[in-house]
Amino acid sequence: MPRKPSATTLRGIGGVAVLAAALFVMNLTLPDYYLRIVNLIGINIILVASLNLTNGFTGIFSLGHAGFMAVGAYTSALLTIAPAQKALALPQLPLWLAGISLPFPAALVAAGLLASFAALLIGFPVLRLRGHYLAVATMGFLVIIRVVLTNAESFTRGARGISGLPVFTNSWWVFGIAVLTLYLLRKLVTSAYGRGMIAIRENTVAAEALGIPIARYRLIAFCTGAFFAGVGGALLGHLMSVISPNFFSYSQTFLLVEISIIGGCGSLTGAVVGSLIMTLLPEILRNFEGGGELFGIALPPMYGLSQIILASLLIVIIIFRPQGIMGTKEFSWSMFGKKRELKKG
């Protein structure tokens, strides 16, 4: 049934166009450091939005996200590094892998698929668990991934890490994928599947009584989340140009969970808001940590300031707004109705 595109669709397209224009201007004018931060915001949006699908919408409290990132990052690294470079750095690779060099988009898809596959393997036994049992089990997955990465030296160079990943990641890739991620996840959570996932979160027994296949829905959410985590991990690897098992540690997982909690774990908009705050704030605070002068006043070095402020922020938010900044609300154009009018006037 063909029909005219709705106002929301048009606005969405307009928003993407504005974002693209902003990225274009930033790429022309900003020094690399700021572009790097902008890219990290985008990567965090991808990672946290996908974490919110499992942790927020479906109520599977997973601490394994960094593990999926690792799977994605290593997959993409092994698929994109030029054969000549592999011969030097990874001489023990099996032949079929040593000779391969895929274009970036193909490597990203492979990264996501392999992360998804890992989620499928771990999901079958683990998703029967609930609450903190599930959280601990997914953390176990993270431990396994790190041990494998550290020990599978012929594939990963172990703890030394792989360096010289081609620096493919730029703001176009990052925000292209971020917008796509948000769009697809939004479609998913507003679909019948998504409603089912939310029903499972709210009341598993009632959802089961309504005929929702709990295990299958949870597995779908888990694997979808892992897919985007894998893609996000690959993007991060190709931004850093170096990856090692230490990159994908508990602190990485907890950073994502923190962003998710601050932004609001039951909302995709929350992922965006949280990523903006939690990526920008430490970088802004960095300017004050080293001491120096601010408006003519000499400041002593205050290293650790940003960690303390971020941790305090987390505590304050948990006390006063335990559902996070966005709660379960999503962005809608009506939220900005007044502001838009002001701009026009």
Partner: peptide
């Protein structure tokens, strides 16, 4: 749809740049 929020962030970033330049 979330682009607007992203945009707001970009503006915030631009503002910080101006301050910390």
């Amino acid at each position: 749809m979330k682009a607007k929020v992203v945009m707001l962030g970009v503006l915030a970033l631009a503002a910080t740049l101006a301050v910390t330049g």
